[in-house]
Design a protein around this nucleic acid. Structure first.
Lengths: 346, 346
DNA sequence: TTCAAGCATTGGATCGTTCCAATGTTTGAC
DNA sequence: GTCAAACATTGGAACGATCCAATGCTTGAA
């Protein structure tokens, strides 16, 4: 078959002896066209293989059919799941996702933002790179595209969506307290990560509510990787009294801690209780399976998309701060403390 | 600040007393404009916060600035890495990625294809859902957008990019043979997966080249998940002579097999040699660290993007079939066989 | 027969940009 | 001083759709 010209509304109209306007009405499902006309038009569209040009339509109608999504790193399973959720919700209403990633670089984030904005998306979902300035983001994005900030706070007034880090860590800590633990560590993560700070606060709040105090030596910092966590495991036991359980910054850290404990002859889930955070797929498969906080990143992604779409329909919506609920998944890495110090466990 | 009108080229032109055409030339970096004029224009653009409308430009210039990417499932780390590579290469030349996912559903794939095509991308990178028909894909995509098929073959004439499954399995098998193994199983995967078939052929070829035969009972099928693989581990040893090593369909299967062996009292890396495929991050962290085939999905993604861009620049390019090289990563899950049957290992 | 109301369709202007042929303005060679 | 070549800029048409006000058609009621 010959490489024919690109087909337009005009071609369909001419072939049928109708006007462009009528074809346009058919394409948009208007009730104004006669049923018979609609059928003829649709048949002709099929026959010649006409393809709608959404960019031209959006130009004239000043509408948009895409949403930008900027994440730090797609190879992080949390972001990948989140992106899948965003795309799922957008596709369901006929929108497409414009992808961008920053690799945690503020400069790349600015470049990606300016590039995305030129495609006139209905909105942008942004997980800011560490160290982002709200003012710089506002400048690159221009005044007309709504932005939903996600995962990490950004200075300025933005729609914000995040998981409930505070409550997650609170639930994890509470679970350990209910098992009888009194000396509970917070393991992994860094002070300059906002999500880590929030989790640490939830942990501290749960301890305080139970009348317990968080000893400073029970706070062990470690880069959020399995290897680093395994290396730091020993730091939990350098001073007495040593903790009998740990709330971990995330699952990667928790799995690393499990390895580190095994290497030191301790048995996680028997001698020492561990709670993770995120419920990554490996959490259910480790030895022992990890008790953790499920964050449902895919659902978070769906919510983000819905929020942007809602704002597009009604730009006067109030700026909102939404936290996504989390839940405790109890598996076998948590156990009562080895001795109970005369504590009456019911 | 008041929500002002959307700014256009005309606003910039009017403010400076120039014509639209001149501003357009500046925006496109044309050498025709005087240096001084260019500077004035750029200053004004900054000042009023003008944002380029790429859709309008593409409409007039009949050009494109996006590439569609359709994957089965972003939450699969292989696709996530691949997508990251595609996006990285596209962003480097100012293109954006239009994301779509099929969830392995042929119907959703058709819907996503038609939706993407309406945005007039320069091309589409497609990992076909299992069971896709080439003709249906061609119909949904129309005649004008080049498609690069990736990861799984599709009937018809397409640019095709895949990793070298055959050679990867060949390298894995060869490595085991070099260690002294003579009874080598192929573990995991299903016959109706094309990638599994290719790997199986590479395995068989390596055995044949070494003058060995693949006993049918050394082919154990299992769904490509850790849990299923662990469950099937015992199947390797039901008949004599049992294998002393296994090439696994992928790393997930290999890690599951490790667990299954441990549960049966065997020590992977000491009693039994295991090779994986993919080099997922966990492969380096398992016990023992997994010998595997690295496939560099990010590089594959970059190549896919470059290929589409090349075809866009020169549509007359020949249809090509490109396989991405793979490499063997030796870690500690492979060892010589426990007894050597009088074989003289050098 | 007339007229209003509803239905189905239409031409022309328009969205924000680029293309193109034309026009003015320098510059330098002879 | 003239002329061609190079430089810099320009207005109007065009890309493929939608918007909008206008226009024929049918009806059926008065």
């Amino acid at each position: 078959m010959p490489q024919q010209q690109k087909l337009t509304l005009n071609d369909v109209a001419r072939n049928l002896g109708l006007s462009r306007a009528t074809i346009s009405l058919v394409l948009r499902g208007s009730p104004l066209v006669k049923t018979e006309t609609r059928a003829r038009v649709e048949a002709e569209i099929q026959r010649i293989g006409y393809i709608y040009n959404r960019a031209a339509a959006n130009l004239r109608a000043r509408s948009a059919s895409s949403v930008g999504l900027i994440v730090n790193d797609l190879s992080n399973p949390f972001f990948a799941e989140f992106a899948a959720g965003v795309d799922e919700a957008l596709a369901a209403v006929g929108f497409v996702t414009l992808l961008g990633s920053t690799g945690e670089s503020v400069e790349r984030q600015q470049a990606v933002l300016s590039s995305l904005v030129e495609h006139a998306p209905a909105g942008i979902i942004l997980s800011p790179a560490e160290g982002s300035q709200g003012s710089a983001v506002a400048r690159a994005a221009g005044a007309h595209v709504p932005i939903l900030v996600f995962n990490r706070a950004l200075d300025g007034d933005w729609d914000f969506l995040a998981m409930d880090n505070h409550r997650g860590a609170y639930l994890a800590t509470e679970h350990l307290i209910a098992l009888g633990h009194r000396r509970i560590a917070f393991f992994g993560g860094h002070r300059d990560s906002s999500s880590c700070r929030e989790r640490l606060e939830g942990y501290a709040a749960a301890l305080a509510d139970a009348g317990l105090t968080a000893e400073p030596q029970w706070r062990i910092e470690a880069a959020p990787t399995r290897v680093e966590a395994a290396r730091q495991a020993g730091a939990l036991f350098v001073r007495d009294p040593a903790p009998t359980a740990a709330v971990c910054y995330n699952d990667a850290v928790a799995l690393g801690l499990q390895l580190g404990l095994v290497a030191r002859g301790r048995r996680p889930g028997i001698d020492f209780a561990i709670v993770g955070f995120d419920d990554i797929p490996e959490a259910a498969l480790s030895m022992p399976p990890l008790t953790t906080i499920a964050t449902a990143p895919r659902g978070l992604g769906r919510h983000a998309a819905e929020r942007i779409l809602a704002r597009m329909r009604d730009p006067s919506l109030e700026i909102a701060l939404h936290t996504e609920p989390v839940s405790l998944i109890v598996r076998e890495s948590t156990c009562p403390p080895p001795e109970t110090y005369g504590h009456t466990a019911k």
